[in-house]
Simulated scan of single mutants.
Amino acid sequence: MTGATGRVALVTGASSGIGAATARLLAARGMRVVVNYLRSVAAADEVVAGIEAAGGQAMAVQADVREAAAVESMVEQVQATWGGIDVLVHNALIPFAIKPFQDMSWDELGGKLDGEMRAAFAVTKAVLPAMTGQGWGRVIYISTGLSRQPREGLIALGTAKAALVQFARYVAQELGPTGITVNIVEAGPVEDTRIVNALGEEHRQQQVAATPLGRLASPGDVAQAVAFYAGEDNAFMTGTTAAVNGGMSMY
């Protein structure tokens, strides 16, 4: 198969934000896109309708990605319609507490870690049989710069995403011989997200001032990096991290 046409991409948490932008972009590039959502059925249907109106193919499938049985059921539903999943974009945001460590319970910190890794484990396990069977696959995990750079009140998110990033590297190493690439897109602050909104306008302006490109990322900025990693042409990058942060952090 040449080009992206016909490839099936599963985007978790795709009813809004980065996930929705990614679903639209992958569909515009010829992929058939599975728009996964947890509760926002109307928003997911709207993403699908927009993709179809633009001439693409998409389907919305509900699943809590923390639940292995729900993920397996979703993948079976996709297989029955379109066959195996070629591209996994794991974007779904597992809920987390925003508070200082001293005010945090183990259930809040440990629960975020557990939910983050359960979801990554479940979705990765579910898509691997089809990918390994054909000797081709693309796996992209959405992370955050908070996995490297601490920010007040965000220890649960940053710690969980750091675990996700290291998990991704191990998976990349193991799956390389099978023809599957595994990469991370590390987003800086993104406009109209829970974190940016929760921290307030003053904090947002401080982040803009600290960004050489002079603005925060849009969901579309992050989607562009995901689409690169998902493409046929990206054949020799695996275990890498693309930092989409406008130069706020440079590694």
Score class of each variant (00 low, 15 high):
154 L>Y: 13
122 A>I: 05
110 G>R: 05
86 D>R: 08
62 Q>L: 07
73 S>P: 03
178 T>N: 06
194 R>T: 10
82 W>R: 08
111 G>M: 01
8 V>T: 04
237 M>G: 14
169 R>V: 06
148 R>C: 02
126 A>W: 01
19 G>H: 06
43 A>K: 15
146 L>A: 11
212 P>T: 04
249 S>Y: 06
155 I>H: 13
77 Q>G: 15
1 M>T: 11
161 K>W: 01
179 G>W: 11
120 A>K: 05
91 N>A: 13
56 G>D: 07
128 L>H: 01
100 P>F: 08
140 I>S: 07
139 V>W: 02
15 S>W: 12
31 M>K: 10
182 V>T: 08
250 M>S: 04
93 L>Q: 08
152 E>A: 15
44 A>L: 12
158 G>N: 01
74 M>P: 03
208 V>C: 06
135 G>L: 06
204 R>M: 04
157 L>K: 11
202 E>W: 01
203 H>T: 09
131 M>T: 00
23 A>F: 04
168 A>D: 09
78 V>I: 14
94 I>M: 00
138 R>P: 01
99 K>H: 14
12 T>D: 04
128 L>Q: 01
2 T>A: 06
10 L>M: 06
29 R>T: 15
137 G>C: 00
80 A>E: 12
41 V>T: 13
53 A>S: 12
225 A>W: 09
228 F>M: 13
151 R>F: 08
91 N>F: 12
196 V>E: 00
130 A>H: 13
33 V>F: 07
85 I>N: 07
250 M>N: 03
152 E>F: 14
207 Q>W: 00
167 F>E: 09
196 V>Y: 00
24 R>Q: 12
124 T>P: 03
248 M>G: 06
135 G>V: 05
170 Y>G: 09
22 T>I: 05
184 I>G: 09
137 G>N: 00
224 Q>G: 10
115 G>D: 03
34 V>M: 13
11 V>Y: 04
76 E>R: 14
48 V>F: 11
228 F>A: 09
214 G>W: 07
216 L>V: 01
245 N>M: 14
131 M>D: 00
177 P>H: 12
118 R>Y: 07
10 L>Q: 02
35 V>Q: 12
46 E>V: 13
64 D>I: 05
199 L>C: 02
227 A>S: 14
24 R>M: 08
173 Q>F: 11
201 E>P: 12
72 E>D: 14
106 W>A: 11
15 S>T: 11
41 V>M: 10
113 L>F: 08
79 Q>T: 15
155 I>P: 05
119 A>F: 07
145 G>H: 09
211 T>K: 02
80 A>N: 07
235 A>V: 15
98 I>W: 02
173 Q>G: 11
129 P>A: 01
251 Y>W: 15
55 G>T: 02
68 A>I: 09
195 I>S: 08
5 T>R: 14
15 S>R: 14
117 M>H: 02
77 Q>A: 15
217 A>N: 03
10 L>E: 02
28 A>P: 10
17 G>D: 00
193 T>L: 00
154 L>N: 09
154 L>C: 09
196 V>C: 00
14 A>E: 14
